[in-house]
C-alpha cells in the first residue's frame, strides 16, 4: 500500500484538485468513500488506483499522484460509477478531467490508450469521418502491435465491413477548422476558469490568495 505525507501537499496541488473538480462539475466533499463506484467498475482489475482511491487523492490534494495514475486511462467511460453513486458524484467526469489535464501536461500513463484516441481524432481531422481500417492500421503501426487483429481484416473485408473506399465528408476544411478551433479554444477557456473564485478547499483559497496566482502554475 502506498503511503503519503500530507504535510508535503503543496498549495498548487490543492488548487489543481479544485480546478479538476470544477472542470468535472463535481464537489469532491460529496464523496464519503463508500466504494460503490469501485464495486461496479468493470475495469477496476487493471487500475493502479481504484476509483474511490482516485477521488480520495483529489480530496487530500494529492493531485500529482492522481494525474500520474493509470486509472483514468483504463476507465472505459461506461459511467456505471456515476450512475450508482449514492451522493450523485459524477466520477466518470472526474476521470475525464484528470485524463485531459494529464495529457496537457504531457503525461502518458497508458501509452496504448493515448495512441489509440489520438489516432482516432487525427482520423476525424483528416476525413471528417472515422475510417475504421485506417484507424486500426495506424494504431498498430504507432503502438508496434503490428499483427493485432490482422487476421480479422480479410474476414471483415469479406463481409463488406471494410474496403478500399475512404469515407469522407464533403466539407473536410470545415471539420478540420472545427477540430483545430475546439482543441485551441479550450485552453483559453480553462485559463479564464483559473481566475474563478469558486474554490472547494478553504485552505486552497487562502493559499491561492497568498502565494500563487490561481491557475498560474497548473499548466
Amino acid at each position: 500500500m502506498e503511503t503519503f505525507n500530507l504535510s508535503d501537499v503543496t498549495d498548487a496541488e490543492l488548487l489543481q484538485s479544485d480546478r479538476l473538480a470544477r472542470d468535472a462539475c463535481v464537489n469532491l466533499d460529496d464523496c464519503y468513500q463508500c466504494g460503490k463506484c469501485t464495486a461496479g467498475c468493470p475495469m477496476v482489475h487493471e487500475m493502479d488506483l481504484v476509483p474511490r482511491q482516485l477521488i480520495r487523492m483529489l480530496q487530500l490534494g494529492l493531485t500529482k499522484r492522481a494525474l500520474s495514475a493509470k486509472t483514468p486511462w483504463i476507465c472505459a467511460n461506461c459511467m456505471v460509477c456515476s450512475a450508482r453513486c449514492p451522493q450523485g458524484v459524477d466520477i466518470a467526469a472526474i476521470m475525464l478531467a484528470v485524463r485531459r489535464t494529464a495529457k496537457k501536461q504531457g503525461l502518458q500513463p497508458v501509452r496504448e490508450a493515448d495512441l489509440f484516441d489520438d489516432a482516432f481524432v487525427a482520423n476525424i481531422r483528416s476525413f471528417g469521418k472515422s475510417n475504421e481500417a485506417i484507424l486500426a492500421a495506424k494504431y498498430n503501426l504507432l503502438s508496434s502491435h503490428l499483427t493485432q487483429d490482422l487476421l480479422n481484416a480479410p474476414r471483415m473485408a469479406a463481409r463488406g465491413m471494410i474496403g478500399p473506399k475512404i469515407h469522407s465528408v464533403k466539407d473536410r476544411a470545415a471539420v478540420r477548422r472545427l477540430v483545430d478551433r475546439a482543441l485551441a479554444d479550450e485552453g483559453d477557456r480553462e485559463g479564464d476558469q483559473g481566475d474563478a473564485s469558486v474554490l472547494l478547499h478553504p485552505s486552497a483559497a487562502a493559499a491561492g490568495a497568498a502565494t500563487t496566482s490561481p491557475g498560474g502554475d497548473l499548466r
Binding site: 467511460n77 481524432v121 476525424i124 477540430v179 475546439a182 479554444d185 479550450e186
Partner: peptide
C-alpha cells in the same frame, strides 16, 4: 447532409469542446 463523425469517446477523452462541437455540427 454532410454529417460528420460524432467524436465518440476519443473526442471525449481529448477535449470537452471537441466532444460538443463534432456532434453539434
Amino acid at each position: 447532409p454532410d454529417w460528420c463523425c460524432c467524436g465518440t469517446s476519443a473526442a471525449l477523452v481529448t477535449n470537452a469542446d471537441l466532444a460538443l462541437a463534432l456532434p453539434a455540427r
